[in-house]
C-alpha cells in the first residue's frame, strides 16, 4: 500500500467529491488525514531557506520565498508520512501563510509526488492512477469555457507540473491576487482528459489536441485550448465533477489506462 494524504479537509465547494477511504484501498492506497496546521508549522520552519537559482528572477522575491517555504513544508510531510501523494485545502493558506501552494505542487508533481489542489480526493486518486499506470505527470484543471459547436474546451488552473511545460513564469494566484500562480506553457500535443467519480465506480476518458496556450483575464493562470475528439456535451449534461486530469498521451496510453481501470472494476461512461 502507498500512502496519500488529505492535508486539511476538502474545500467546502467540492460538494460532489467526498470519497470513502476504504473504497480507495482497491487502488493500493492508504489515505490519511493530516491537520493543515502541520503544514503551516512545517512551512514556517523554513524561513531561512535559500531559493534555487533557476527560478524566474522577474517575480517578487519575497512572494517567491514564501511560496518556496510551503514547498519545503510539503516535502517535510512527504518524508514524515512516507507519502506518494497529497492534496491540500490550499485556500486556507491564503489567510494563514499569506501565500499559495501552487509552486510547491508544480515542483512536487514534477518530482513524481502527486499534489492536487483544494483537498480534491478524486483528483488526487485520478492523478495517482495516471502516475502508476503511465508513469506521467498530469495537470489538474478546471474546464473553464466550452464551445459545443466546435468541440473546443479551455482548461485552466494556477499550477501544473513543471516537467509538462516548455516554459513557465510566475504570476499572482488568480482568485486571491497574492502568492504565486504558475503560468506554464504546455506543448501542443495529443492529450487525454480523465477523472473518476466520487464513488470510484465510473470514469471518463476523452482524447484531444492542445491547440494553443492562452493568457486570458478572469481565468486561472495556466490555460490551454483543447480540441476534444468527439462529443463535449459530457461536460454540460453528465459530468463526474469539476476538476479533470490532463496527461500527454495518444491511443496507446488511453487503452492502457482504460484497461487498468476496467481491471479495477470501474465503468467507462464517456
Amino acid at each position: 500500500m502507498k500512502n496519500l494524504a488529505v492535508i486539511g479537509k476538502p474545500s467546502d465547494w467540492l460538494i460532489a467529491s467526498s470519497v470513502d477511504y476504504d473504497e480507495a484501498k482497491k487502488f493500493g492506497v492508504n489515505i490519511i488525514d493530516v491537520d493543515i496546521k502541520e503544514l503551516e508549522e512545517a512551512s514556517l520552519a523554513h524561513i531561512e531557506e535559500p531559493l534555487p537559482g533557476d527560478f524566474p528572477p522577474s517575480f517578487n522575491k519575497e512572494e517567491t520565498r514564501k511560496a518556496y517555504q510551503i514547498y519545503m513544508g510539503l516535502k517535510d510531510l512527504v518524508s514524515k508520512y512516507d507519502l506518494s501523494g497529497l492534496t491540500v485545502r490550499c485556500f486556507d493558506l491564503l489567510s494563514s501563510l499569506k501565500s499559495t501552494s501552487c509552486l510547491g505542487f508544480a515542483l512536487l508533481n514534477a518530482e513524481g509526488i502527486i499534489a492536487t489542489c483544494e483537498g480534491d480526493v478524486p483528483s488526487m486518486l485520478s492523478m495517482f492512477l495516471v502516475r502508476e499506470t503511465l508513469n506521467k505527470s498530469a495537470f489538474q484543471a478546471n474546464p473553464s469555457r466550452i464551445q459545443t459547436d466546435t468541440g473546443e474546451v479551455i482548461f485552466a488552473h494556477c499550477t501544473l507540473p513543471l516537467d509538462m511545460c516548455s516554459s513557465y513564469s510566475f504570476m499572482t494566484h488568480y482568485e486571491s491576487g497574492i502568492g504565486i500562480g504558475v503560468r506554464g506553457r504546455l506543448m501542443e500535443r495529443k492529450i487525454l482528459i480523465f477523472r473518476m467519480d466520487r464513488y470510484l465506480k465510473r470514469f471518463v476518458l476523452l482524447s484531444g489536441d492542445i491547440e494553443q496556450n492562452l493568457a486570458l483575464e478572469n481565468l486561472c493562470r495556466s490555460q490551454i485550448q483543447v480540441k476534444v475528439d468527439g462529443d463535449v456535451t459530457y461536460f454540460l449534461k453528465r459530468p463526474l465533477g469539476n476538476h479533470h486530469i490532463i496527461v500527454y498521451g495518444e491511443r496507446k496510453e488511453a487503452e492502457t489506462l482504460s484497461n487498468r481501470l476496467k481491471e479495477l472494476g470501474l465503468e467507462r461512461v464517456s
Binding site: 467540492l14 460538494i15 473553464s144 469555457r145 481565468l219 453528465r238 465533477g241
Partner: peptide
C-alpha cells in the same frame, strides 16, 4: 459564464444534483 470558474462550479453542482 465563461469566466471566473463559473463553469467549473456549475459542473460540481450538476454532479451533486445528479448524484
Amino acid at each position: 459564464f465563461g469566466n471566473s470558474n463559473s463553469l467549473a462550479a456549475s459542473m460540481e453542482i450538476l454532479t451533486y444534483v445528479q448524484n
